Simulated assay, not measured.
Amino acid sequence: MLFEVASGPATVRDGDVVLGRFEGVFVELDLPDTTRRLSVEAAGQTITLDLPEDDGPMLGPPLRCGPWAAIYKADWPRGHRRVFYDGRLPGRTAIDWVRLDDQGRIATGDPDLAKSALGYGAEVLAVADAVVAAARNAVPEAERVSQNGKHPQDLAAGNYVSLDLGKGRFAICEHLIPGSVAVQPGDRVRKGQVIGQLGFSGDSTGPHLHFHVADAAAPLLGEGVGYGFGHFTLLGRYEDLGRLGSAPWTPLTGLAPQRHNELPGSNVVVRFPD
């Protein structure tokens, strides 16, 4: 059993207004498939949690090929896993996908130019046979990373596509290039179908694909839920994410590179099927 534990402040927001902050403990666990109840002892109290009946949908890749860095970490105060919106954590299981090359570089030429990013314009794929629940296609995008300002909450996701996976679960792809969204609400899509292109719209520190699964179609109105990917190749990990863009990742040892039906680990580097 693997534990990743972080403690520190979390933020509760209503729109762009901070309602308050509180101290919390965030725990990520790799549990046996048969575990359905978990007891946690803290401050002299025991809390019992009933876990979901399954690990969530096992999805197709949201992108092709790679390498792609799966960027997230439980102990980042401003990471998706710690910022509440109206009492919900939409990014509880979110990953920011960043394209890199074999040397760990994420851009060619001027790195401040959004189109210099290696992932810019990559085709974003439907992760399952699904119905388009919501989409947006007209949020403008800054030409340069340094020019991208703060957006109101309802535009923070930029251009996006939300897919209804059934059973009250929605796969959400954010920060797409304006004009690239190829679907509209009500469309039926097939797994692997192109639904848009990776871009830089909305609140983004650089071109990437934000992906998460939640229990509501709108990007910030749901609670993040579990999911995994049916297949990917594990290449390595960045123990120090500050090296991303300037140095290769560290290869992982002791793990089979072919991974099935799981969520990629924090800051790992993967390759999806072509």
Rank of each mutant, 00 (worst) to 15 (best):
P140M: 01
T46H: 11
G199Y: 03
E41T: 15
G15P: 04
G79C: 05
K191W: 03
C173D: 15
V181L: 00
P273Y: 06
S146P: 04
Q45R: 13
A10Q: 11
D164C: 06
G66E: 13
Q45F: 11
D55T: 15
A182H: 07
A214Y: 05
D101P: 00
S180K: 00
D154H: 12
V17N: 08
G91Y: 03
G245E: 03
Q103D: 14
A171H: 11
E53S: 15
G158A: 07
R37W: 15
R99Y: 01
V145D: 13
R190S: 12
R81K: 14
D215E: 09
D203P: 00
M58D: 13
D112P: 14
S246R: 13
H212D: 02
A247P: 04
G119Q: 05
V132T: 10
N137F: 06
V189M: 00
V269D: 07
A126C: 06
W68H: 12
A114W: 03
H231A: 02
F84P: 06
A130F: 08
D30N: 11
G60C: 06
L29I: 09
T35L: 14
I195Q: 01
L59G: 00
L209G: 00
G15D: 05
S7M: 13
P90C: 02
H151T: 03
K191C: 07
V270I: 15
I95F: 07
V181A: 03
G242H: 09
E262I: 05
I71A: 15
S266N: 12
A182D: 08
F170W: 11
A69M: 08
T93R: 11
G79H: 07
P273N: 07
F211P: 01
R82N: 14
V161R: 07
L221A: 11
G186H: 05
P251A: 11
P185K: 01
L51A: 13
G87T: 00
S201G: 02
D54T: 06
D215L: 05
Q193T: 03
N137R: 09
P61W: 00
Q184W: 09
